[in-house]
């Protein structure tokens, strides 16, 4: 997963035709949390398999693109309350991030991204010496 974050080679380019032919793209719902060590992003991506997720961090922007394979059984649609399509969302991260240590995992349709803060922006405990 980790390597996918910074990957900018052939696979990302190769996926473009598929993205272009899609008609519907959804904005996933996210939770974003910050603590002293890192920023945490949780995104609901139902139906996205780990291989179909493209996550990139570039110039302070986190780009998330999840491809959703067409699904649904054959037959007559009786009731359609939601549509199926790709997920796409871009986040600007103003905090300084240690890009090499970004980690991500996808489980049960939920993506978790760990964005560790760069050492220099982390709050530091200053030891006070008694003289």
């Amino acid at each position: 997963m980790n390597s996918e974050v910074t990957k900018q080679n052939g696979s990302a380019v190769a996926s473009r035709p598929t993205e272009a032919t899609r008609t519907t793209t959804f904005t996933p719902r996210v939770d974003i949390l910050e603590n002293q060590e890192e920023l945490l992003l949780y995104a609901d991506l139902p139906g996205v398999k780990p291989d179909d997720l493209d996550l990139r961090f570039e110039k302070g922007e986190l780009v998330l693109h999840g491809r959703c394979q067409p699904r649904g059984p054959q037959g007559r649609a009786v009731q359609t309350e939601y549509g199926v399509g790709d997920f796409h969302r871009v986040f600007s991260v103003s905090e300084e991030i240690d890009a090499d240590k970004i980690g991500a995992e996808l489980k049960n349709g939920v993506l978790t991204v760990y964005l560790p803060k760069a050492e220099k922006v982390k709050p530091r405990q200053i030891a006070i010496k008694a003289v």
């Binding site: 609901d44 054959q74 649609a77 009786v78």
Partner: peptide
């Protein structure tokens, strides 16, 4: 989302 064919009814939810 619901579908049906001759044999089954299918219900899908995210």
């Amino acid at each position: 989302n619901l579908w049906e064919d001759e044999q089954n009814v299918y219900a899908e939810a995210e």
